[in-house]
């Protein structure tokens, strides 16, 4: 792995770790459209792979919606009976579609934090 990529990954990991702490989220994962995790918090790689795969599955579902000419989903939310919300936000960096997903417990706010995180992720990946 090149030094630039390694330092980029480290920056993304730090960014997600900060996002998790600031938002009080149960987890954060940044995945590509094929289900590979690029960065995650907390640092369990097995869990990250599983989460990234699920996020990619959700992204695939978003692709089906787009094919129906209903536009491209900006955000997909699942809420369970305990009130936890899995938020998936697809976004584009160059030609690449990535998805930031966070698990939000209870009534915590996430929109501003995830929007800021996506901006920061773009900066890391474009530089």
């Amino acid at each position: 792995m090149g030094e630039g990529i390694a330092s980029g990954r480290a920056r993304l990991s730090r960014l997600l770790s900060d996002l998790k702490g600031e938002g009080g989220f149960a987890f954060c994962v940044l995945a590509d459209a094929e289900g590979f995790p690029l960065a995650w918090a907390p640092p369990s790689s097995v869990q990250a792979e599983k989460r990234a795969a699920v996020v990619a599955l959700i992204h695939k579902m978003a692709g089906e919606v787009r094919r129906l000419d209903l536009g491209r989903p900006d955000e997909i939310t699942f809420r369970d009976r305990q009130g936890r919300r899995l938020i998936c936000r697809p976004f584009q960096v160059g030609d690449r579609v990535l998805i930031l997903a966070v698990l939000v417990p209870g009534r915590k706010c996430y929109r501003l934090l995830t929007r800021r995180a996506i901006r920061a992720i773009r900066l890391v990946l474009e530089n």
Partner: peptide, 24 residues
């Protein structure tokens, strides 16, 4: 969305799916 929610819930140890939203 319903199918994806059920799969996601099962894989991520979330509780039963209550509802989902798609913002486009």
């Amino acid at each position: 969305v319903g199918h994806a929610a059920l799969q996601a819930g099962g894989c991520l140890d979330l509780g039963a799916f209550r509802w989902a939203t798609v913002v486009t």
